[in-house]
Write a protein that binds this DNA or RNA. Structure first.
Length: 189
DNA sequence: AGCTACGTGCTT
DNA sequence: AAGCACGTAGCT
């Protein structure tokens, strides 16, 4: 049958083609469960252990700024908007409320120790983790890459990183340095 | 050891 | 040019 090897069993009655892509395909919420999609793969896998803990604890800690260790646990009045430059993994993780920041964090060069030196020439590139395809969590199951998974060894076409689609040499834009993130502590009073 | 998926050459 | 097939890097 057409059971794709990458489709999770999920609901028995639902054929793979009718997977609610909009629901689970993106990291819209932050929970360990959501971060454990098919094939045991989760974007860049949140390797920053401490930072991950910060993320998970965030909801309980919003309100005072103890949620941002980098700020030293400062308490701020409601309505204050904090602008953080995500240079510090800890700070970025603490203010994270979207997959963008998570991916950014996991993808930060400081944490990329795998390609640690030597010849960058022949190394495999890694997905950026922030583009729409990268944020997609579930294979479509119908594209050629999904169907030819056994022989093709390619990721679902809808999940193929935009950066990896480009030729290795053609990354015109250097990575944007600090990514400013606005946090509204209390939207309204 | 096994799996996923990037890189690349070949085919269409 | 696009798609397919294969080797293998990188990771668990």
């Amino acid at each position: 049958m057409h059971r794709n090897d990458s489709q999770r069993p999920g609901k028995p009655g639902v054929p793979p083609e009718t997977l609610q892509m909009a629901n689970n395909n993106f990291l819209s919420t932050l929970s360990p469960e959501h971060c454990r999609p098919l094939a045991g793969e989760c974007m860049n896998k949140l390797k920053c252990g401490a930072a991950e803990a910060e993320i998970m604890n965030l909801p309980e800690r919003v309100g005072t700024f103890s949620a941002i260790p980098a700020l030293g646990g400062i308490s701020l009045p409601p309505g204050v908007i904090v602008m953080t430059a995500l240079h510090s993994p800890a700070a970025s993780a603490a203010v994270t409320d979207s997959a963008f920041q998570i991916a950014n964090l996991a993808d930060c060069p400081q944490n990329n120790s795998s390609v640690s030196s030597g010849n960058p020439a022949k190394k495999k590139r890694k997905r950026c983790g922030v583009c729409a395809p990268c944020r997609r969590l579930i294979n479509c199951g119908v594209c050629s890459s999904c169907r030819n998974r056994k022989t093709g060894h390619q990721i679902c076409k809808f999940r193929k990183c935009e950066e990896l689609k480009k030729k290795p040499g053609s990354s015109l834009e250097p990575p944007p340095p600090p990514f400013y993130h606005f946090v509204s502590i209390s939207q309204r009073r």
